[in-house]
Design a binder for these strands. Structure first.
Length: 569
DNA sequence: TTGACCACGTA
DNA sequence: CGTACGTGGTCAAC
């Protein structure tokens, strides 16, 4: 029987659980009669099998974590959805399964434990069942050691189907089930996109990068001795301004502080923004600040970093995570997300290709309008620049209006915002009430969920206290909660946008090579630049409609065709 | 070796 | 008294 015959008639988007074992692939789905259908394919090239099924049936692929090298348009990532449902970042199949079945986390078995207890447990136990009598998944199944036969692979495929059903049930119990399911799907695809970002890397003009580094930290050192002498030379420029008798270690903040004190500058810490006003006071300050910049470049983004993370093919690669941290933003390692602006000049499209760049304009206030459902703020969000109508409404200038809105979202208590903040309360009571409710939850240590259902854990707080430290800790948790709902919802919308773009540009041989919170960089063949631009802009309203069908908030992204990242903005 | 803190880059 | 993240430095505690 052929694979397609075995799978039978399935609708586009129907769930197909995929298990890859040493001798082939098993695909499993729930049949019309509710009984699982399993298809066994003996192959050494599971990627080819999956791609063929993708071509012909376009299912929603179900897996615990994305498979490498497959190009699919829909998936359900059990671990990504686990992070959505239960919050946090660290997870694994055993944990996800336990949480879905209300099993105690502490009773999760480990491989070691298995050996220890083997004498007493194999009696009456069916090791061919991936689920233990106590309900937990067997560790050796999770590790893949039990996938040697098609029969076992089928059982494992069915386990994923059961986990999916549980997750769906729990998502549908959330306040906004439709939003949660939509977000679960885009978060799943985002995990796959992360794998692709990691594999593809960011195109770098290596000679240009080396030139930028050299202009700041000197030419590439040939030996370890060169490294040391160059370092000492850089240090000496600063130390020339330091009187004898005080500490001379520029990398030790305490000693730097005493150096500054020795020339009559007393500061509580030595951060750049604090030293900035003293630039004119003594030449040491300027020398130190220049040194800091070069030191940062040479330590974090120096030649070592280049050699370690930029491949022979001129691609900068780092690990990506689809929903790290509190609110579910994407993160990336190898400095991809905090590349200094000056180095972005070396991020250059390859010959025959260009970058299509776009970012989400004023995404946070727009998302606030959407998730709070404040009609007046939603109306303001119809404008290209939503701070203008807000300013008019409050009777203040645009800059003040912007500060007030941002201050409300981030929980700022000081600064210009005072009077304007009270204006906001009157003009946009629903949005402000939404933020205030989040703030209260944070203060009391009550866990919250983003619009799309992501659980954000709060640190438990003690009851109202007069202690200054505890009160400020509670206030910090309030700000954290406020921000998490906005940042988290914005991250959901961003990912929905990104994966929509991903799906629609692949036919044009274009790839997303950078995601930066509200910013998208697509590497595209030059002849498709215009079409990709239209897709990038069009995908935003499409994604926003899917994310929140009832909202009339306008989201803004203008795509620009550029050669290097530094041309953005 | 590990974790705290500082410092600083990005959004 | 705005939030988040990753990175690399020093230091103190192990």
């Amino acid at each position: 029987m052929s694979l397609m015959e075995c799978l039978g008639p399935i609708g586009r988007g129907e769930l197909v659980s995929v298990v890859v074992g040493p001798s082939g692939v098993v695909l499993a789905r729930v049949g019309a009669d509710g009984v699982d259908v399993h298809c066994w394919i003996e192959t050494e090239d599971h990627v080819a099998v999956i791609n063929e099924v993708e071509q012909r049936l376009r299912p929603r692929w179900l897996w615990w974590a994305p498979l490498i090298d497959v190009r699919v348009t829909m998936c359900w990532d059990l671990l990504a959805v686990d992070r959505l449902l239960f919050g946090g970042w660290r997870t694994e199949p055993a944990l996800a399964w336990a949480k879905l079945h209300n099993l105690s986390i502490d009773s999760i078995p480990s491989m070691g434990q298995l050996d220890l207890l083997s004498g007493s447990t194999d009696e009456g136990e069916d090791l061919d069942d991936p689920v233990r009598p106590d309900g937990h998944l067997r560790p050796e199944w999770i590790a893949g050691r039990s996938l040697r036969s098609f029969d076992h692979m089928s059982k494992w495929g069915s386990i994923a189907l059961r986990a999916y059903e549980r997750q769906l049930t729990q998502l549908r119990e959330l306040p906004d089930p439709a939003a949660a399911e939509t977000v679960a799907r885009s978060e799943s695809l985002a995990e796959l996109m992360c794998l692709e970002l990691q594999q593809d890397g960011l195109p770098i003009d290596v000679p240009r990068l080396e030139a930028i580094l050299a202009s700041s930290v000197g030419t590439r050192p040939a030996t370890e001795a060169d490294v040391i002498s160059a370092r000492e030379r850089r240090d000496q420029v600063v130390l020339a301004h330091v009187p004898a008798g005080v500490g001379r270690d520029l990398r030790n903040p305490a000693q730097v502080r005493s150096m500054l004190r020795s020339v009559g500058i007393d500061v509580s810490d030595t951060r750049a923004w604090r030293l900035e006003p003293f630039r004119g006071a003594h030449p040491l300050v300027d020398a130190l600040l220049v040194w800091r910049k070069a030191e940062r470049l040479s330590t974090t983004y120096g030649f070592n970093w280049l050699d370690q993370h930029v491949g022979a093919d001129g691609r900068l690669r780092g690990a990506w995570s689809g929903s790290d941290g509190a609110a579910g933003r994407m993160t990336a390692q190898a400095g991809l997300h905090n590349l200094p602006g000056e180095l972005r000049d070396a991020v250059v499209a390859e010959p025959g290709l260009v970058f299509v760049h776009a970012d989400l304009g004023q995404i946070e206030p727009r998302v606030l309008a959407a998730v709070s459902g404040d009609a007046a703020l939603c109306a303001a969000a119809l404008e290209d620049d939503m701070y203008s109508p807000v300013a008019a409404r409050l009777g203040v200038d645009r800059a003040t209006a912007k500060l007030a809105v941002l201050g409300a979202m981030y929980g700022a208590t000081s600064g210009v915002a005072g009077e304007a903040l009270r204006g906001l309360e009157r003009a946009y009571p629903v949005a402000m009430g939404f933020l205030d409710a989040a703030d209260k939850n944070g203060r009391y240590g009550i866990d919250i969920r983003t619009y799309g259902g992501r659980l954000v854990h709060m640190r438990p707080q003690r009851a109202a206290s007069a202690d200054a430290d505890e009160r400020s800790a509670a206030a910090a948790q309030g700000r954290y909660a406020r921000n998490a709902l906005i940042q988290g919802a914005a991250a959901e919308l961003f990912k929905a946008w990104a994966v929509t773009v991903r799906g629609r540009i692949s036919a044009l041989d274009a790839r997303i090579v950078m995601c930066l919170h509200d910013e998208l960089l697509v590497h595209a063949p030059r002849q498709h630049a215009e079409e990709v631009s239209l897709i990038v802009e069009g995908a935003l309203s499409e994604a926003a409609r899917r994310w929140m069908p009832t909202s009339n908030v306008r989201y803004v992204a203008v795509a620009r065709v550029i050669e290097r990242w530094s041309e953005a903005k």
